[in-house]
Computed example of a mutant assay.
Amino acid sequence: MPENESWEYTLYIPNDLRAVTVSRRTLRLILTMHGLIRFVDVAELLGAELVSNAVRHTKGPAALRVRWLAGVLRIGAWDADPAPPEPPVPFERSADAEEGRGLALVRACSDVWGWQPLARDGNRGKYVWCELTSAA
């Protein structure tokens, strides 16, 4: 499939820590099948962090969304908690911490990241996302 074509996948996941591994492997497969191997390692790391936060810090279902559009790979996780994510601490301060490194890694390894309130199937929640550009 040519890189100039756009696509989007959504993987709905239960609130289960095993969903992190399923999401990471699914993301690797999607990117490999679309010829975007150069993104796989970083995308797996970022996707796993986003899904892990969605599963560990909320109750209820979650979803992983992966989109390719105009040379930009967007990876995001939806969860059922509408509260904003905790702001990432500077990566240098989180390096020795047991927790709290997830969004610091997302901020450090992506070109841009953010979050927004989002409703799905009548349920409120939030969508935390990051982007990687093809120039990477």
Rank of each mutant, 00 (worst) to 15 (best):
P2F: 06
S6Y: 11
E8Q: 15
T10P: 02
T10K: 12
L11M: 09
Y12R: 15
I13D: 01
P14Y: 06
P14S: 13
D16I: 01
R18E: 13
V20E: 14
T21E: 15
T26K: 10
L27D: 02
R28M: 04
I30Y: 11
L31R: 05
M33G: 05
G35F: 11
G35L: 04
G35P: 07
L36V: 08
L36P: 00
G47Y: 01
E49Q: 12
E49D: 14
L50G: 02
V51C: 11
A54N: 04
A54P: 07
V55F: 09
R65T: 10
R65G: 07
V66T: 12
W68R: 03
L69K: 12
L69T: 10
G71K: 11
G71V: 03
R74D: 09
D79P: 02
A80S: 15
A80T: 14
A83H: 11
P88V: 08
D96Y: 12
D96P: 07
A97N: 07
E98P: 01
G100D: 03
R101N: 05
A104N: 01
R107E: 14
V112G: 07
L118I: 00
A119C: 04
A119T: 13
A119V: 13
G122A: 09
N123V: 12
G125H: 10
K126G: 07
Y127W: 14
W129F: 12
E131Y: 04
S134M: 04
A136P: 00
